[in-house]
Write a protein that binds this DNA or RNA. Structure first.
Lengths: 191, 191, 191, 191
DNA sequence: CATGAATGAGCTTTCATTCAT
DNA sequence: TATGAATGAAAGCTCATTCAT
C-alpha cells in the first residue's frame, strides 16, 4: 500500500467517522479502528484530528462547488440552470456531506469558519454572478443580488438538511422540479 | 434571591455563554463565573451542562415558534403573512438564536436531535397548514406542501445564517420585502 | 485539609519527585501517587507539570538566596563572610536542591532559563556588591568584580555538585574552612 | 561515502543538534534532517538516540580531558599550569560543550551519570595529582587535595557556565589571568 | 440551599524504535 | 546499506460531575 493509498484510506475513514459521529463525537481511535492501523500511522498522514476534519470538509466542498458550472449565455440557459441545480442537489444529497458540511463544520474554530466562509463566499459568488448575468439578460428580477443568492441557496439547502434530519430519502428530481417552479413563479399564485 | 430568580439567572447566563462559545466551547465554569456562583449551585438547578443547553434551546424555540400565528382566512391574508414573516425574521435575527439553534444544537446527541426534530416538525407543520389553507383558497400553487414548506423555511433561514456567519447586520425589513417578492413571483422574471 | 495545606503537600511531593527523578524523568502520576490524590486535584493547584516544577525551583531559590545577607561594614566583616558562606553552603547541601537547581532546571525552556538567570543574577549581584564593598575597604583585590564573583560562586558550588554526583556526604564545615582559605590565600603557596 | 564517514557525519550532526536543542528537546528527526538521510540509516550507526548522545558526550569529554597534561616537574611549572588552564578554558569555551556536558548530560539516566562520574573522576584525578605533586614540591598549600581539586574545577567552570547562560562571549585570556591570580593569592588581600 | 475541593475517565498527541523491502 | 511506513506505549491535560460540609 503506497502512502497515497494510505492517506486516501485514512481520509475516507475520517469522512465516514465524522459523518457518523460528528466532529466532537468522533475520536482518532474511531478512525484508526476503521482502518485497522496504529495510532501513530494516523499522525504520519494528518497533523491531527482537526487537520483530518479540515481535509474532509475541503474534499466535500470541492464536490459541491465543482457541480456549479458557469452559464454559457449562448446556449440554452434554462437547461444549464436545471443541470446546475441537479448537480448541486445531488452533491448535497449525501447524508455525510449534509452532516459534516452543514452542521459539524460550523463554529469549530476560527480557522474552520474561515474555510466555511470561503466555501459560502465562493458558492454564493457563483450564484450571484449567474443572477447578475440573468438580470442583464432580463430573465432575473431586479434587486439585491446578494440577498437573492442567499435565498436561493437556502431554498436548495434546507430541504436537503431537513430530509437528513428526519432520516428521509430525498428524491433529487422532485426537489429540482420544485425548485425550478419556485424560481420561476414563487410559491404564491401570482396572477 | 428566590430559587426561581436563581434559575432564571443561570439560564440567562447559559444562554449568553452558549451563544458566545458554542456548546462544546463552553464550560460550566464559564456559566458560573458569569453569575458569580459556586459550581454546586449550578447543579442544584440543572441536571448538567447538557440540560442547561436543552433549556436554552427550548427557550429559543419558543421565541421563534410563538412568532408564527395561524392565518385567519376571514381577515387580510397577505397582511398576516407579512406579519408572520416579520416576526419570524426578527426572532431569528439574534446572533444568539442563530448560533445556538442553527449550528450548535445540531448533532449533539440523539435526544438533542429529537428536540430539534420537534422544533422543525412544529414550525414546518404550521407553515404546511398555512400553505394548505392557501391552496384551498387558491392562493398557493398546487404541489407537495411539505417540500414547499421546507423551501420556504430555507429561504427565510439561509440569509439569516449567512449574515451571522459573515458577521453582517441583517436588515429585517429588506429581507422581508425580498421574501415577499420571492413568494409572490419567484426569482426569474415570469412571462 | 485546607487548600493551602493541599497545595503545600503537592508542592512538597513535587519537590521530592523532581529531586529523585529529574524533570523529564518525573510524571504527574508520580507526584499524585506520592500524595495519594487524583489526577485532577493536581491540576486544581498547579497549571501543569511545568508550573509545579517552577514553583519548586522558586522555593529552592528562595532558600538559597535568603542565606546571603548584606555585609555590615561596621561590624566584624570576616565573621559575617564566614556566616554567609556557612548559610550558603548549608542551603546548597541538600541533594534535592543541587539536583533540581543545578542540573534539571537548566535548559528546560526559555521561561525557565529566565528564572535561572534571575536567580544567578541576584546571587551574583549580591556577591559582587560585597566584593566591591571589600575593594573599597581595601580587603578585596582589585580587578573585574563580575568575574571574581562567578569564580567565587563556582568554588562554592562545584564541591557541592560533585559530592552529590558521587553520592558523598559533604561536611559543610570542612568546605567552609577550605573556602575561607582559598578566599584568603588562593591555592598556591604565596611568596 | 564510506561507513566511517557516514558515522562521523551523523555524529557531527548529533553534536550540533544536541547542542542546539538539548537532549530532551532534540529528536532523531532533527538529526537525520540535518544529514539528509533516512531514519533507518541513523539506527544502522547508532543504537539509538541515547547512544548517539553518549558518543557526543564522550567526544567532548576527550576534548576537554586531553587538554590537561601532566606537569613535568623538571621544567617550568608555572608555565605548564598556565598552559593547562589555557587549554582547559579554551576547550570548555564552546557553547556546545558547556550546554551538552554541563547541563544536558546530567541526570539523564544511571549509565549517563556513570560516564559523567568517569569524566569528573578523571579530570579531578589529574588535578589532584598535580596538586599533590605541588604539595610535595612545596608550592601548593597543605590540606584536602580532593576538595581543593573540586574548588579549582568550580572556579574554572562556573565563569564559563555563567557566560553561556547569559549569552555572553567569554574572553579566555581574561579568565585565565583571573584564575592564576586566585590560584596564587585568593580573592582577599592577604596579610 | 450554597459551596468548592476532589474526582477520574478519556482524549489528543509524541516520538524512539523496528523491520520488510 | 539505505529506506521510510508502521508501530504503540506513554504522557499531559480537561472538565463534567459529585458530595461532604
Amino acid at each position: 500500500m503506497t502512502p497515497d493509498e494510505r492517506r486516501a484510506q485514512l481520509l475516507h475513514a475520517s469522512r465516514e467517522v465524522f459523518a457518523r459521529l460528528g466532529y466532537h463525537g468522533a475520536n482518532v481511535s474511531d478512525i484508526i479502528a476503521e482502518v485497522g492501523v496504529a495510532r501513530g500511522t494516523f499522525y504520519n498522514y494528518f497533523d491531527g484530528k482537526r487537520a483530518a476534519f479540515q481535509a474532509v470538509v475541503e474534499e466535500m466542498i470541492d464536490e459541491v462547488v465543482s457541480g456549479v458550472r458557469p452559464i454559457d449565455v449562448t446556449a440554452d440557459i434554462s437547461a444549464q440552470v436545471r443541470a446546475n441545480l441537479d448537480r448541486l442537489v445531488r452533491a448535497m444529497t449525501s447524508e455525510a456531506v449534509v452532516r459534516v458540511l452543514f452542521s459539524e463544520a460550523v463554529g469549530i474554530d476560527e480557522e474552520g469558519d474561515e474555510v466555511l466562509r470561503a466555501f459560502y463566499g465562493d458558492t454564493l459568488g457563483r450564484i450571484e454572478r449567474a443572477l447578475r448575468t440573468g438580470q442583464a439578460l432580463g430573465v432575473v428580477r431586479a434587486g439585491d443580488v446578494r440577498l437573492k443568492a442567499r435565498c436561493l441557496l437556502g431554498v436548495i439547502k434546507e430541504p436537503v438538511v431537513q430530509a437528513a434530519l428526519f432520516g428521509e430519502d430525498l428524491v433529487p428530481d422532485a426537489l429540482v422540479a420544485e425548485l425550478l417552479e419556485i424560481l420561476a413563479s414563487g410559491i404564491l399564485v401570482g396572477d
